[in-house]
């Protein structure tokens, strides 16, 4: 206890000791997280990988079938259909991040009404995706508001069953996801901007940097790690959490035209009951895809960070 008056640092122990101690403390502070993940996630993840090679029915039947599930999934072309849809939906990621960044800088610069906007923009995140999906679907239904407006403006030839074809339904979903995520992106980026010294910002403004220069040349390089977070989470979210939105907008249909990998996992594990082995297979495939994309993103952001210092 006598140490209290002369704690750690100034004694300057040898570098190797320091390093070892630092590592020990770091791992100690990571321990709760590692323990929780190990206890809760490790077994289910390993079990999922193992069962992707079985014909698991959710109960006791899990005979080893080798690569049969993988062959079926890739061989029937189902994978490409679903993956292609996932890729289209991924287009919302750059959209939401860029719009979020612009809105965040606008709010940071205190445009008129910024307080109200900041309070309102997050609201979609609080409302059930099922309701939002239903509203979008109604908006684009055959005699919904969008078609009515088109008709009134004289574009009767453009009136169509928007959700009835993947080529129109998927872009609408991209719009919906972007719309839904703007508020989330905005407040994350605002949070990141709190680390920026306002004098830097003010100086750039006085130097005559216009809005886009301020946004992309000043702000963006200073918050690359936060932007990386935004992009990674948006990608992960788009790949793994769109079920309820798709469910209420199209149900994955018509056919499989708007169905995604995670929706299929849901279908295989719940709707068609006993094909959990296949659901595990799709999960493993999804896992690998998201991991590769995330690794690429991180690499990119490392390069960006080095470039911008």
């Amino acid at each position: 206890m006598a140490q209290r008056s002369s704690p750690g640092a100034p004694a300057l122990p040898r570098a190797g000791d320091m390093q070892r101690k630092r590592t020990r403390i770091a791992y100690l502070s990571l321990l709760p997280v590692l323990l929780i993940l190990l206890l809760v996630k490790a077994y289910p993840i390993l079990a999922t990988i193992y069962r992707s090679f079985t014909n698991w029915d959710g109960l006791y039947k899990h005979d080893f079938v080798g690569l049969a599930n993988y062959k079926e999934f890739f061989g029937t072309g189902l994978f490409m259909t679903l993956f292609k849809n996932n890729l289209v939906l991924l287009l919302s990621v750059p959209l939401q991040v860029i719009i979020g960044l612009i809105v965040a800088v606008l709010l940071y610069e205190q445009v008129p009404g910024w307080k109200a906007f900041r309070a309102i923009y997050y609201i979609p995140q609080i409302i059930s995706l099922v309701i939002l999906g239903y509203l979008f679907r109604s908006m684009f239904s055959l005699d919904g508001p969008v078609n009515k407006v088109l008709e009134a403006l004289g574009f009767s030839s453009s009136v169509r069953e928007w959700m009835g074809d993947g080529s129109t339904a998927l872009p609408i979903m991209v719009g919906c996801i972007t719309w839904y995520s703007i508020g989330w992106q905005t407040i994350v980026i605002l949070g990141g901007m709190s680390g920026i010294d306002p004098s830097v910002f003010e100086a750039a403004r006085l130097d005559g940097a216009n809005f886009f220069q301020r946004t992309f040349k000043i702000v963006l390089p200073m918050i690359t790690s936060v932007i990386t977070y935004c992009v990674v989470m948006a990608v992960v979210w788009t790949f793994t959490s769109l079920f309820s939105l798709i469910y209420s907008m199209t149900g994955g249909g018509p056919g499989y035209e708007t169905m995604t990998l995670d929706y299929m996992i849901y279908e295989k594990s719940f709707v068609t009951g006993s094909q959990l082995g296949m659901a595990c297979t799709i999960s493993v495939v999804l896992f690998i895809i998201v991991m590769l994309i995330t690794a690429a993103e991180m690499k990119l952001s490392d390069i960006a960070e080095q470039k911008w210092g």
């Binding site: 994955g252 018509p254 056919g255 279908e267 068609t272 009951g273 094909q275």
Partner: peptide, 19 residues
Amino acid sequence: TNIVGDFYNLLPLVLAGKM
């Protein structure tokens, strides 16, 4: 169970004339 999924999902395509 291995058939009902496609039965649900593809029947609308028949209705729409896509299949």
